[in-house]
Design a protein around this nucleic acid. Structure first.
Length: 872
DNA sequence: CTGATATAGCCAACTTTGGGTAAC
DNA sequence: CGTTACCCTTTGTTGGCTATATCA
């Protein structure tokens, strides 16, 4: 029944043998899987093995492929396991002979795809200890994971996602900003503010950060922050409910603070660290878009439907996870005992859900219950007595409406799903969730959540001319911009794009919060694109706030402290170490030295010059000045594209394996011979090399149109074919031509003539097509007529035929340009006998027509067959 | 945990002007 | 016999950059 399949026998050092299905990536059945009862293995080429021949363990060669260290190591281990499993000391038998015969047959080019061994057929010959072993995916700590790097396509996709996500987040920021201007929201939040806090901020013109202290503390005490919110239809509605319930997401609470500041007539803006999907693809997560996908998903759809939640609830794995989440959360908050923790693991569904509820509620309670949570008592331990915690739990549960609970439940569940989908380990994720909800600590540490939303208030009384002051009501922080970067880094939400929103506009203020730009530069999108996106928004922001801080941000950008690690100097935007220069870079001038890092002098980045070869500069329309020596000489790859150069490679190596590079300071504009008297200066091949438009001889133009050279030739204008590059196919390089180069003065004449010529050519083409169509119609109709005539001649001979024939011919002849239609008339009666007719080779003159415009002669056989001949 | 270093995989750059055969 | 059109074949190597692993 089983198809004989080529299999390989590995001769093992101790004489043991194992049957190996040829596979680069088989699967281990484990040491215990003995005498497999029919094994089917399918190999799928993994990306790592893509394009490589399957790693086969050759007979007598334990290490099939020792080219790379890592693989050799892995295979050594594989063979050890093979040995372990296969040391049965089997006698060579028929099967093996058969198998080896197949192997010897080689097999090297065989497609080793699928294997199947049926026990029924062979087991009696092999004995019970025969083991089938697949040499891959052995679960072992030392097994090297296949490292797959992202391809260019994936990178492009990730960048696109990043950009789109950025745009979405900006749009979101604008929505929030706009809502902060809503009069009703402003009035509502203002109405909550106690009177005594009002006059602290009355003097807007001389406002200082200190004046905001009480306001911020009050706000922090009054509103508690929750991880998830209920969608109420619009952000305005959400804020309305947040005001009513004194509870909202960090974003909502922060937005409310901005609304309050604006209601108080302060200049305030909504600031957010855009939590955007990564610019680079995440190679750790295979098969999915990237790890941010789930985050994207949860952010855009934070409220999964109850039905979806129901599905999830039915999954035991998720349940367990939730249980653990809630347990450790309880432990964290309330200090539950160990026994309680273990018992909690076995809780029923309802208890799990209630504990989740408790978590949600307790987070609010803990935030709002620690009312006087100023910096003075920030160090108060979070652990409280169990009793107190239980009390709070009770209060929370009873105080919350059932409906609300359900919502929270659902939200928390969807959040949990998100956390499971996320590549972050559950434990870590849990911590993040906890952090997001806990807001009692004013000391930046891991326990404080990553700051994603805050406000900036312009304090005119601060500094000499006033400045923007960082105000974070979520974390009860005032003027603490220096702490943002560290806390973001700790919470794995590094600063990337800190954007301030005001007046429906936006502005990148990352510089204010980021002291180590080199750390984030890699994660940011192409600055040009980003600036283009923000340019119109920046103007709107400026109009609204009337405060330009560009100088301040610029100063920050230029006065970054010297990094202490050498790595940081790699592509640092301000500083450079000589060791990190690229192959085509040089320091010119080599100085000044700004400092030292581990003994290496640090130079300003502005001293780094990028060099190019003579040809490279030529493309840019520049040439090297006379008598300039190469700034740097680097080795160039050997030319190995044909046999001749390989033969003479020894000489070539000695001669010129180097590439001479020049810097910008050694250049002058390209000086090419001018076009004189309508003659295009050409190279020795009679062409012009157009590496770029800058390489054109002065006074000439490059016209990239097909068939243009014919026009130039016809008009007698001097031209040269434009060689634009090379095509390297099948190991050969072929010049690629595109259009022609002519003197500028002939440009219009040629283009006009070309347009005319093209028009004519198209007309001719059309005419030809029409003629052909007519001819085909004629043939078709003739054959119909003939057929009909034949038919009739057998049924009712010579009856009613004349009319049809006349009609058919007439129609055609009206439309043809034939000048001799009348002569073709009586279609010979010979036709009637023409079953095996051969077309007349020498067509009679009277059966030919000639079109003087197209030079097409149409010859017709009396049977209706015609042939067209173009006369030249 | 951080930084230095080694390693491996992806990818871009580099190369820089056909030859044999059949039909006409 | 000279000219022309068409087909053939689908590279191959090197080094830079970068992510990851490993070690101090």
């Amino acid at each position: 029944m089983a198809t004989p399949v080529p299999v390989r026998i590995a001769a093992l050092p101790r004489g043991g043998r194992a049957l190996l299905l040829p596979s680069a990536h088989g699967r281990s059945l484990g040491p215990g899987a003995e005498a497999a009862t029919g094994v089917a293995g399918r190999r799928r080429a993994s990306p790592a093995a893509k394009g490589k021949s399957p790693a086969k363990v050759e007979a007598g060669s334990p290490l099939g492929n020792t080219r790379k260290k890592g693989r050799a190591k892995a295979e050594t281990q594989d063979n050890a396991s093979v040995e372990r499993c296969g040391a049965g000391g089997l006698e060579k038998n028929n099967l093996e002979e058969q198998v080896e015969a197949v192997c010897d047959n080689d097999a090297a080019d065989m497609d080793w795809e699928e294997g199947q061994v049926e026990r029924n057929e062979y087991s009696h010959e092999l004995g019970e200890s025969f083991t089938v072993e697949f040499n891959d995916d052995v679960p072992s700590s030392t097994t090297k994971k296949t490292v797959r790097r992202a391809t260019a396509e994936e990178k492009e996709l990730a960048e696109l996602v990043h950009k789109v996500h950025l745009l979405c987040l900006i749009a979101r920021g604008r929505v929030v900003d706009k809502t902060c201007n809503d009069p009703l929201i402003q009035a509502s939040i203002l109405s909550l503010l106690p009177n005594h806090l009002l006059w602290n901020v009355a003097d807007v013109r001389n406002l200082k950060a200190v004046n905001l202290r009480n306001l911020v503390s009050w706000f922090h005490r009054t509103f508690c922050v929750t991880a998830q919110s209920t969608h109420r239809g619009s952000f305005v509605s959400n804020l309305g409910f947040a005001i009513q319930d004194r509870i909202g997401t960090a974003e909502e609470v922060c937005a409310l603070s901005v609304a309050l500041f604006r209601a108080l007539n302060l200049t305030a803006r909504f600031v957010t660290n855009l939590d955007v999907a990564g610019l680079r693809p995440d190679t750790k997560v295979m098969g999915t878009l990237n790890q941010d996908a789930s985050r994207l998903c949860t952010r855009s759809l934070p409220h999964s439907s109850p039905a979806a939640d129901g599905n999830v609830v039915s999954s035991p794995a998720l349940l367990k996870d939730n249980t653990q989440d809630s347990v450790s959360m309880n432990q964290r908050r309330g200090g539950l005992g160990k026994s309680k923790q273990t018992s909690a693991c076995k809780r029923s569904l309802s208890k799990t859900l209630s504990s989740i509820k408790a978590d949600n509620e307790s987070s609010c309670i803990s935030a709002s219950s620690q009312l006087p949570s100023t910096s003075s008592n920030a160090e108060v331990p979070k652990r409280k007595g169990d009793v107190e915690f239980e009390l709070q739990l009770e209060m929370a549960l009873s105080a919350t409406a059932a409906e609300n609970q359900n919502n929270n439940q659902a939200n928390h569940m969807s959040q949990s799903i998100g956390s499971l989908q996320d590549s972050t380990p559950p434990k870590k994720k849990l911590r993040q969730n906890t952090e997001a909800t806990s807001s009692s600590s004013a000391v930046w540490s891991r326990s404080a959540g990553a700051p994603l939303y805050w406000a900036e208030v312009y304090c005119s009384g601060q500094a000499s001319t006033g400045r923007w002051v960082h105000v974070d009501v979520v974390n009860d922080l005032l003027d603490a911009e220096c702490k943002v970067e560290a806390s973001s880094a700790v919470c794995k939400k590094p600063l990337r794009y800190v954007v301030a929103f005001a007046g429906n506009g936006a502005k990148d203020v990352t510089r204010r919060y980021c002291l180590q730009w080199y750390r984030i530069a890699q994660g940011r999108v192409n600055p040009e694109w980003w600036e283009n996106v923000l340019a119109p928004l920046k103007q709107m922001e400026l109009t609204a706030t009337n405060n330009s801080e560009d100088m301040e941000l610029q100063t920050r950008a230029l006065t970054e402290p010297l990094p202490t690690s050498q790595q940081a100097y790699k592509d640092h935007h301000l500083y450079a170490l000589e060791k990190w220069l690229h192959k085509n870079q040089i320091l010119h001038p080599k100085g000044p030295v700004l400092g030292f890092c581990k003994g290496h002098p640090v130079y300003p980045r502005s001293c780094v010059q990028t060099l190019q070869s003579r040809h490279g500069w030529l493309r840019e329309g520049l040439q090297i000045r006379e008598n300039e020596l190469p700034a740097k000489v680097v080795t160039r790859p050997k030319r190995t594209f044909n046999a001749q150069s390989v033969q003479s490679s020894a000489n070539e190596d000695a001669l010129k394996p180097t590439l001479e590079l020049y810097g910008e300071w050694q250049l002058e504009p390209l000086q090419l011979p001018h076009a004189v008297d309508g003659i295009v200066p050409k190279n020795e091949r009679g062409q012009v090399d157009v590496w770029s438009e800058k390489c054109l001889p002065p006074g000439t133009v490059h016209l990239r149109l097909p068939r243009l050279f014919q026009v130039a030739k016809r008009l007698g204008i001097d031209y040269a074919p434009a060689m634009v590059g090379f095509d390297y196919r099948s190991g050969r390089c072929l010049p690629v031509f595109d259009g022609i180069v002519v003197c500028t003065e002939f440009k219009h004449a040629i283009l006009e003539a070309y347009a005319e010529g093209e028009e004519q050519r198209r007309a001719e083409e059309r005419k030809q097509e029409e003629a052909q169509a007519l001819s085909r119609w004629y043939q078709l109709l003739c054959s119909i007529v003939t057929r009909q005539r034949l038919k009739d001649s057998y049924k009712t001979p010579s009856h009613g035929l004349g009319h049809e024939e006349a009609l058919g011919n007439d129609n055609i002849q009206k439309n043809t340009l034939s000048s001799q239609r009348s002569e073709r008339k009586p279609i010979s009666s010979k036709l009637q006998t023409d079953h095996e007719h051969e077309h007349v080779h020498e067509y009679p003159e009277e059966d030919q027509s000639f079109d003087e415009e197209t030079f097409v002669r149409t010859k017709r056989c009396p049977c209706g067959f015609s042939i067209q001949v173009e006369e030249l």
